[in-house]
Design a protein around this nucleic acid. Structure first.
Lengths: 121, 121
DNA sequence: CATCAAGTTTACGTTTGCGTAAAGGTAAGG
DNA sequence: CCTTACCTTTACGCAAACGTAAACTTGATG
């Protein structure tokens, strides 16, 4: 039997992640998330909540909502045979390259901060 | 004797870093860089070039120009006794926290990408 | 059933980060 | 001196990512 799925209102998630409801609705406008509707009200599932986490993670990394949607869409691949594997692999590789570059940038800046800090004696 | 410092025009740097001159001037408007002037023309030194690299690194990490300026300003501390050490240490710590969070986010996403990739068989 | 917090849509406003003319100044070569 | 390439400032334009206000609707509660 299916365990009762957790559900969230828009302000539940807004509070939890310290963003505004407006932002969450905006992400919906931009097709990044699409919660169930119960009447007019939005009901968010655990999966929706995870998607929101992915969105925010992408944001912290400086990706645009459009880029984040691309990444998120990768998660929605219908199981089994994929549509255009090579295209997707390319997309994944692109993302990975960007992330690896970012990690380098971060490590560089962390070192710089250390040096700066040591100057403050 | 002082070794002749390398100098660059705005388009030298624009080409090297694959950005537009417009962007570089914009960074100047935003007080992120302030090259020497020879007449009306801008002359960039090696130090200016390094600053530009810092700017672009910050951009790749998703920082706003205002945030980047804060970081860059840390480099311009007059040697020796600093103005408000504790304040600066706080600022540095803030930056570090953000960078560490980003690194976590990156590592998370890299793992996710691997998983996604493995689904494409 | 009245109330009241929380939800909804619609739409204009704002900030950031440049793009893109427009209109002209400057430096080197022929 | 004239062309040509590159530089300058000024200023309006624009997309992204929401903020914010207006004007309802809904659902839980006393």
């Amino acid at each position: 039997m299916t365990v009762a799925e957790k559900e969230y209102t828009i302000s539940d998630l807004a509070k939890e992640f310290e963003i505004t409801s407006r932002s969450i609705r905006h992400y919906e406008d931009e097709k990044l998330i699409s919660p169930e509707r119960r009447g007019t009200h939005r009901i968010y599932s655990s999966r929706d909540r995870v998607r929101l986490q992915l969105i925010l993670r992408g944001k912290r990394l400086g990706f645009s909502l459009a880029q984040i949607r691309q990444i998120i869409d990768l998660y929605d691949l219908p199981e089994g045979k994929q549509k255009q594997t090579t295209l997707l692999l390319g997309l994944i590789q692109e993302r990975r390259d960007a992330l690896l570059q970012q990690r380098k940038d971060i490590n560089f800046m962390l070192k710089e901060l250390e040096m700066l800090e040591s100057k403050l004696d």
